[in-house]
C-alpha cells in the first residue's frame, strides 16, 4: 500500500464563469513512506494547489487523495481538521505563525490540541527548538523574529507533533540563500532522522537539487517525475 495516492485529481477555479481556470488536470501520483520530494514548475503550474489538496486544505473538483489508508477527500471539514492534526505538518511560504502566541506556544500548539501532557510538550519543544537553534527565542512573540527565525519556528511547529507527512509550500521563497540552504539541510535531516515524508514545492534550482525525487508540473499536469540516486 502506498503512503500517499493521488488519483485523477482535477481542480477548476471559478467553474462556469468567464474567469474559469483549470489548475490541475487529472493528476495521478503515488508516493512512498519517508520520501523527500520536490514539486516544481513555473508560477501557475498548480504546485500550491496540489499541495493544498494533498494536505486536505482544499477540496479537488474531481478525483481522490488517499493518505496513510484514509481517503481524505471523503472526510468532512471537522474530521479533516483532526486528520491534519494527527498526520500532517505544514510549513507555509509566509510562515503563518499565530501572532498572539509565543514561539514556544506556537511550537506546542498542535501537541496541546492532541492532548499531550504539558511536561511531554515542554520536553519535545525544547528538543526540536535546540535542533533548529531557536531555543533562545522560546518566550518571544513571532513579530520579534527575523524571517529566517520565523520559518524555523514554522518548521519546528510542523515537526514537533511527529506527523507522518510534512508539506512545505515554497518554504524558502522569503529567505536569503544562506537561510534557504540551512532550512533545506534541516528538512533533509528531519527526513532521515525523524523518518518523516516531506513534500515541498519550489522553483528555486538550489532547493530542487536537494530532493531525491523531483516532480515537475506545467499547466496542471505532471510533465516529469524523476528519482535521483
Amino acid at each position: 500500500m502506498n503512503f500517499l495516492t493521488v488519483r485523477n485529481v482535477k481542480k477548476v477555479f471559478n467553474e462556469g464563469s468567464e474567469s474559469q481556470s483549470n489548475a490541475l488536470m487529472g493528476i495521478d501520483l503515488s508516493i512512498g513512506k519517508e520520501e523527500f520530494i520536490v514539486i516544481s514548475g513555473p508560477s501557475g503550474s498548480g504546485k500550491s494547489t496540489l499541495l493544498n489538496i494533498i494536505g486536505g486544505l482544499d477540496a479537488p473538483s474531481e478525483g481522490s487523495v488517499e493518505l496513510v489508508g484514509t481517503v481524505i477527500t471523503a472526510l468532512n471539514e471537522n474530521d479533516l481538521a483532526l486528520f491534519r492534526r494527527e498526520n500532517i505538518g505544514f510549513v507555509f511560504q509566509a510562515y503563518n505563525l499565530i501572532p498572539v502566541l509565543t514561539v514556544k506556544e506556537n511550537i506546542e500548539y498542535v501537541m496541546r490540541l492532541m492532548g499531550i501532557p504539558q511536561s511531554q510538550c515542554d520536553a519535545r519543544v525544547l528538543e526540536v527548538a535546540r535542533e533548529l537553534d531557536i531555543d533562545t527565542y522560546l518566550n518571544k512573540f513571532p513579530d520579534h523574529l527575523s524571517g529566517g527565525q520565523q520559518q524555523r519556528v514554522a518548521v519546528a511547529r510542523a515537526v514537533a507533533s511527529k506527523p507522518k507527512l510534512i508539506l512545505a509550500d515554497e518554504p524558502t521563497a522569503n529567505l536569503d540563500t544562506a537561510n534557504a540552504q540551512k532550512l533545506m539541510e534541516l528538512m533533509r535531516r528531519l527526513n532521515i532522522e525523524e523518518k518523516v515524508t516531506i513534500i515541498f514545492s519550489s522553483h528555486d534550482p538550489m532547493v530542487i537539487e536537494k530532493a531525491r525525487r523531483s516532480i515537475v508540473l506545467r499547466d496542471g499536469k505532471i510533465i516529469e517525475d524523476t528519482v535521483r540516486s
Partner: peptide
C-alpha cells in the same frame, strides 16, 4: 480570518 485559517490548517476544529 487568515489567523483562523492557519489554526484550522494545523488541526484546530471549527467548533474550537
Amino acid at each position: 480570518v487568515r489567523e483562523f485559517g492557519i489554526m484550522m490548517a494545523i488541526g484546530t476544529q471549527f467548533h474550537d
